[in-house]
Every structure is written in structure tokens, then in C-alpha cells.
């Protein structure tokens, strides 16, 4: 419930047209029942006419006024109505007085300042009485007397008999802390994690740890696969030569150096798992030698046809896998 007083300072007489400050209307809030921390608002309406204007820069600034009173905000708007200037000023105070018992306090008055306060209409003369002139040319917002009430322990049960809860249940929840933006930190964390993961992968590669650990090669298995691929293109001369080369490279890789026909016996001793294929290995090397180094390629191909090469590769691959 709110009510207000309206105080009207009538600064003009019976002749309305000649006044400079026409009216200061103050709409006050209630003057009692205030506790520490309460706010109250006062609305002031100033009406001027003629050349007189309210000097808004001289209005009080928000901030502490006394040790117990803060002016929280002051807003003013200006409008024109029927040739008059109307200023609406909204003052908001907050009280920080901790009353022990009911006490009366005064919100101090402050003057309003005007531009050209003394200008008068041409058909009028300035009042000769100084007191009347003062009324006519000056105005202020008066003191407001408030009655402060002390805070008392409230007995909830009395106020809310049906409530049997703890005090904390009926209190308003704590103010929620506002969230600090962590987007940039999340971004940094993501970048750092990626960098760490990259370094980890690099170290694994550098030390040849799984999955970069070199598995023992399977040259014959790969050669077998490639020779099968070659067979798909038919047994043309070029692919037969490729097949021989593929198998030779597999032998080279298994032996760790270039393997010639002469070296087959040494190769067998080093890799006894291929010993069962010895006669065919020798035949392969013999015919490959004939193929590559004599001018009788046809004979070589007849002696050790493509199918035999494939079978030999297949068997070598199987032996390689079975022993690994």
C-alpha cells in the first residue's frame, strides 16, 4: 500500500500567465514502517514556464548522502504540456539505519536550481516584496521525516502456523553465482590435449612402439598376393617377368641381401623352414637365370611356367606363415 502526499507550492498568484516556476509537486511514499535495507521512491514534478528551465545538472548525484542513507538512483525526464516545461524526477533511496527502537529520521531537503529564474512576462512587474520574490523565484525538495522500525525476531509459527519447516526452507534461496565464461580455457585445454596426443603418437613412432613396431615382414605372403594379382592380367610375357621379379625381391628381403642362384644352399641353411621346397627353389633360380641372362626366354618359361611360379610363391608364403 502506498500513498503519497501532494505538496503544492503555488508560486503564482491569481494571474497565472506571468509565473516563472509554476509548481513543484512532490509525491511522497509512506513515512513509516521502514527497516534496514528498505528502499523508497520519491517522485517530484516541476513545472516551469516562460524562459525558466530546471537546471538538471544541479540535481543530486547518486551515492551515499549520510552514513545511513544512499541515493541509489535519480532519473529525470522532460516533457512539454501546453506551453509549460514539466520535469519528472524520480529519486530512489535506500536506508541502512539499524534501528534499535522506532526512530524518526529526516531525509534532508535539497534545493532545485533554475535557469533564468527571475525572468518575468512582459506584462508583469517583479514582486516588490522580497519574501514573495523568494517564493516566486526559488524552489526546493523539502525534508522527509520517516519512522524507522527495529527488526525483531519473528516467530514463524505465529506468522505461518501451518509451516513447520526449518527457517532455511522458507528463506529465499541464495543468490545464484553467475557463470564465468570458460570457453577460452576449454579451447586451450583442447589444443593442449591435441598437442599432447600428437607428441605421444610421435614418441610411439620414434621409439617404434606399438602400433609402429615393425612386425617381422612377410615378403613371400605379399609376393604371393601380387603374383595372384598379376595372373589376373593373363600370362603375358611382361607379367611373367614381373612375377619372377616379385619373387626375387621377396627372396632378397627374406635373405637381407640380394640372393643369387649360387646362394640358394646358404639361404636354405639360414632358413631351414624352406628346405622342403629346395628342389623347386633351385629349379626356379635356374629357370630365372635362363630367362633373364640367356637369349632363350621361351625355354625358361616352358621349364618353369607361370603356374609353377604362383604355386611356389604360394608354398613359400605358407611355409613363412607356419614358422613365424
Amino acid at each position: 500500500m502506498r500513498f503519497f502526499w501532494m505538496i503544492v507550492f503555488v508560486l503564482i498568484g491569481i494571474h497565472p500567465a506571468s509565473a516563472a516556476i509554476d509548481a513543484v509537486n512532490i509525491y511522497e511514499p509512506r513515512t513509516f514502517g521502514y527497516f534496514i535495507g528498505d528502499t523508497l521512491e520519491r517522485d517530484v514534478e516541476v513545472i516551469t514556464s516562460g524562459h525558466t528551465e530546471l537546471f538538471t545538472a544541479a540535481l543530486p548525484r547518486p551515492g551515499p548522502l549520510t552514513y545511513w542513507l544512499d541515493l541509489v538512483s535519480i532519473d529525470h525526464t522532460e516533457r512539454e504540456d501546453n506551453g509549460r516545461q514539466i520535469y519528472d524526477i524520480k529519486l530512489k533511496y535506500q536506508i541502512f539505519y539499524s534501528a534499535i527502537e522506532a526512530t524518526e529520521l529526516d531525509i534532508p531537503a535539497f534545493p532545485l536550481k533554475f535557469k533564468n529564474p527571475t525572468s518575468v512576462a512582459p506584462n508583469e512587474t517583479a514582486p516588490s516584496d522580497p519574501e514573495e520574490a523568494a517564493k516566486k523565484y526559488a524552489a526546493s525538495v523539502p525534508t522527509l521525516r520517516l519512522t524507522m522500525s527495529p527488526l525483531r525476531n519473528l516467530v514463524l509459527n505465529d506468522l505461518m502456523p501451518e509451516k513447520t519447516k526449518e527457517l532455511s526452507d522458507v528463506l529465499r534461496p541464495n543468490v545464484q553465482a553467475h557463470l564465468i565464461s570458460i570457453a577460452s580455457k576449454q579451447m586451450k585445454l583442447t589444443i593442449a590435449s591435441l598437442a599432447l596426443a600428437g607428441c605421444g603418437v610421435f614418441l610411439l613412432w620414434h621409439y617404434a612402439i606399438w602400433p609402429f613396431a615393425k612386425r617381422a615382414g612377410r615378403p613371400f605372403t605379399q609376393a604371393d598376393r601380387r603374383i595372384r594379382d598379376l595372373m589376373r592380367y593373363g600370362v603375358a610375357d611382361g607379367s611373367y617377368q614381373d612375377a619372377l621379379l616379385v619373387l626375387h625381391r621377396a627372396f632378397d628381403e627374406t635373405a637381407g641381401h640380394r640372393l643369387f642362384a649360387q646362394d640358394t644352399s646358404v639361404f636354405m641353411r639360414k632358413h631351414p623352414r624352406f628346405a622342403v621346397l629346395a628342389p623347386r627353389l633351385e629349379a626356379f633360380f635356374e629357370s630365372s637365370r635362363l630367362y633373364f641372362f640367356s637369349d632363350d626366354r621361351r625355354a625358361a618359361e616352358d621349364r618353369f611356367p607361370f603356374e609353377s611360379v604362383r604355386k611356389l610363391a604360394d608354398d613359400l608364403a605358407r611355409e613363412e606363415r607356419s614358422s613365424a
Binding site: R249, D252, R258, S288
Partner: peptide, 8 residues
């Protein structure tokens, strides 16, 4: 050289 250069 003989270990690296492929023949044939």
C-alpha cells in the same frame, strides 16, 4: 653394393 643393387 652387391647387397643393395637388385639383380635381375
Amino acid at each position: 653394393v652387391f647387397a643393395k643393387v637388385p639383380a635381375p
